[in-house]
Design a protein around this nucleic acid. Sequence first.
RNA 1: GUGGCUGUAGCUCAGGUGGUUAGAGCGUCGGGUUGUGAUCCCGAAGGCCGGGGGUUCGAGUCCCCUCAGUCACCCCA
Length: 429
Amino acid sequence: MATDSDAALGRDVFRAPKGTRDVLAPESDRWIEIITRFGARARRYGYGLVITPVFEHYEVFARIGESTDVVSKEMYDFLDKGDRRIALRPEGTAGAVRAYVEHRPTPPWKVFYVAPNFRYERPQAGRYRQHYQIGAEVMGVDDPAVDVEMIDLLGGFYREIGLNSVRLVINSMGDAETRRRYREVLLEYWRAHSTLLGDTMERAEQNPLRVLDSKKPEFKEMLQHAPQITEYLTDSAGNHFEQVQAGLRSIGNHFEVEPRLVRGLDYYTSTLFEFRSDSLAAGQDTVGGGGRYDKLAQEMGGPATPAIGFGCGVERLLIVADADGALAPSPARVDAYVVDAVGTADVVVLLHELREAGVASDRAYGGRSLKKQWAAADKSGARYGVMLAPREMETGHVVVKDLTNGQQIEIRRDEVAAWIAVNTQRRDF
RNA sequence: GUGGCUGUAGCUCAGGUGGUUAGAGCGUCGGGUUGUGAUCCCGAAGGCCGGGGGUUCGAGUCCCCUCAGUCACCCCA
């Protein structure tokens, strides 16, 4: 079996596999923040949570485009025990579209998700084999107002959590007629430069648009003079793109039109957008992005359904957050810390009362010395230390100490939970 | 998938030209103070020096392979 050979290869099998990692507290506190804020905002915009399987039949994801790297070389696929060809989700849209086609909800179908994606590729900072994306999709509406709403949803989220280094770039892939004409012109242009392109010429023949975002320095000048898709937009495609831009302006959203913006997945049509940050490495500076995919539902056997969506990489978002000084983990994790000088079951009761009263609270275990318990109370970041001690207990009191200034008072045992609750009110996630 | 760099305690890192029992700071645990933290002092635990092979009397140190991380590509969130 493979497990034996892994060990033989010198792989430490009791470590997270290559390209994966564990997220522990307090780092994971930031994930809670991201997920809850994004979820709250999406619901405010009228989106509902959708949960689709982590794996699907291979063919679902293959619709992303056979010529894309995601499908041709990065798919985590395998045969299951029933000989089904299964693949782990490489991105969020395909599964959501499959669910739409399967359930046929009444449009507009507005959904959001937070889910892991899998791609078999060489890991780097901000690029993992298992990474998480938050995303959203709207199916069944062609209105450019939806394009604007989506961009506003993601851009507003970035602003809310304090990412101030992200900038928005947009482009349009036009309609089928646009792409047919543009593809021809572009391919001619590539052929005229085939010696310079070298190996990339193969890709140019296969998918002319994808050459546009090559990072090779020697292509820079050639790319700058390449024909631009915005010159080839048909009237209706151009009109849609104009309305999107007008909508973005009307809500004060700054953006740049980048005619060379293309995205890695073949299903995109019409509006395309990306949020980039200079805090990320040059070749992978996209925090999140998406676009229209008006033909995908049909390709999965559903009705013709205009649609648009985006994905945003959580790990990358965190890199940007660090650079921008956003999403700092909150220092205090509890409000109260119980110190036990009596050794009775009353500690258990008091903690229960505190927690039921909404007070985040903790204690030391294992009968440690008072000194150690108070040290632990200090380290916990709690505002108050509550000590159960024999002398005060005799008169029905406990000691409450404000750990920020060392002041100590006595409070009635039966009132202490309520007293601390009102003195530590705070917003919890 | 291709190429470069890195890999010593939980964390951050020291360990000229190979030489006895591998160190520090922080953190953890215990004690000084068995009714009191944030200062101070003392002590302890904790290391297949990423893994394997080789050169050598002797390898954390040199060579090869490998695993992992990281950077640049391909590409992508």
